[in-house]
């Protein structure tokens, strides 16, 4: 990709296909079209999302940032197929999403490891649920455990692992089902700051190595810049895509290296301004 130094800004509420436009349609892994969501509750109606459209191409790492409570997580739940939108649609490889198909891996904020299962059994949970537990998929899970330093801990229980290791185990549980697209919902925010920095580096390395297309929701601007190729900035509720920030770093980028890059603060200032926290 050959974007300039300055991030691209799109019109308010407009479609945010800027980065993707340059690519052919066939490489679009995920297409989100005019998504809208209204919540109904006893207290009335809340318009959470309004006309959200974007697409993600194979191998991209995209972050979504936005003011707290703007519906970032809701957006992920819809994309994962856990929540029905009021309008619009989500296509994965041109087909409507279905949670049971296993095309999408969704990692939540907490690791949600089951305390009564060993790490190995925890890692197999997704495969078990999706009925994909075969000799071959077990092998793959073991390979992942080996590659990412958890193999020696496979017979331990979650309570015996550190926060960073638990998060890695949760990631392997998701990766073991071989999702086409990975969704991360504030997946690091339950960790303390130092663990968080090292885990994001870890996870970034793993995802790049496995060549996973990733869509991540975060409230942490530095995290979004340091990890992703594109940052979608949502507005306050009802959320629309306010603007998009394309980040360009050197090819051997890692989250920690990006944080030291001179372009980092340019991106940060841009996103900060767009978030318009003081409005």
């Amino acid at each position: 990709m050959t974007q300039g130094l300055l991030p691209l800004k799109t019109q308010k509420g407009g479609s945010a296909l800027s980065g993707a436009n340059k690519l052919t349609m066939s490489s679009q892994l995920l297409t989100v079209e005019r998504l809208a969501l209204k919540y109904q509750s006893g207290n009335g109606e809340t318009e959470a999302l309004k006309n959200i459209s974007f697409s993600v191409s194979e191998g991209e790492y995209i972050s979504i940032v936005g003011p707290s409570g703007c519906g970032k997580s809701t957006l992920l739940s819809i994309i994962a197929g856990l929540l029905e939108p009021t309008a619009g649609r989500v296509l994965l490889d041109g087909l409507p999403v279905d949670p049971a198909s296993g095309g999408i891996g969704y990692m939540l904020q907490r690791d949600n490891l089951l305390e009564w299962r060993s790490i190995y059994k925890n890692v197999l949970l997704g495969l078990e649920i999706q009925g994909k537990l075969t000799e071959e998929s077990r092998e793959y899970a073991i390979t992942l455990l080996k590659n990412y330093g958890l193999y020696e801990f496979r017979d331990k229980y979650p309570a015996q692992l550190s926060g960073g290791m638990r998060q890695r185990a949760a990631l392997i549980r998701t990766l073991a089902t071989r999702p086409r697209l990975l969704l991360l919902d504030e997946a690091f925010s339950a960790l303390d700051y130092q663990t968080r920095l090292s885990v994001t580096d870890d996870v970034y390395r793993i995802l790049r190595k496995e060549n996973k297309t990733t869509l991540m929701v975060t409230h942490d601007i530095p995290e979004s810049i340091s990890m992703s190729d594109r940052v979608l900035i949502l507005s306050r509720r009802p959320a629309v895509i306010q603007s998009v920030c394309e980040t360009t770093f050197s090819d051997d980028r890692t989250p920690l290296r990006c944080r030291g890059d001179s372009r980092f603060s340019t991106y940060f200032n841009f996103i900060w301004k767009e978030l318009d926290v003081h409005e």
Binding site: A80, L82, P99, Y106, N112
Partner: peptide, 8 residues
């Protein structure tokens, strides 16, 4: 919710 993300 985690189980549902796997389509349980």
């Amino acid at each position: 919710r985690m189980a549902r993300t796997f389509g349980a």
